[in-house]
């Protein structure tokens, strides 16, 4: 879906105007990025938590050339749904 549709829904729900919503969204994303970039995690009660996971280094082989590579470790952002969201996902049978 388009972000504009989503934001207008948020705007209605929170009772704000469009400009406020856009700005707040930008600032929220910025704050969340900052938290994750520091390697911290953020838990949103009732929704889930954003966190950083470390993928360890590994050996990889290019199947065509047979060359081996050492893939360096990396940090990836991840989202883990919380308990109530998990319950809802479990009960979810698909939309329609």
């Amino acid at each position: 879906m388009k972000q504009s549709v989503f934001l207008s829904a948020v705007q209605q729900e929170a009772g704000l105007n469009a400009a406020q919503t856009r700005e707040m969204t930008r600032q929220l994303v910025e704050a969340l990025n900052g938290i994750l970039a520091d390697g911290d995690s953020l838990t949103v009660h009732g929704f889930g938590s954003f966190e950083v996971k470390k993928k360890e280094e590994r050996l990889s082989v290019n199947p065509q050339s047979g060359k081996r590579f050492m893939i360096p470790p990396k940090l990836v952002p991840a989202f883990r749904p919380g308990a109530s969201l998990k319950e809802r996902i479990k009960a979810y049978q698909g939309h329609e």
């Binding site: 707040m24 929220l28 910025e30 938290i35 520091d38 995690s41 949103v44």
Partner: peptide, 12 residues
């Protein structure tokens, strides 16, 4: 560190 939602509202 583990932050909660208030961290975001504080930032706003």
């Amino acid at each position: 560190s583990r932050f909660v939602l208030s961290e975001l509202t504080d930032a706003l």
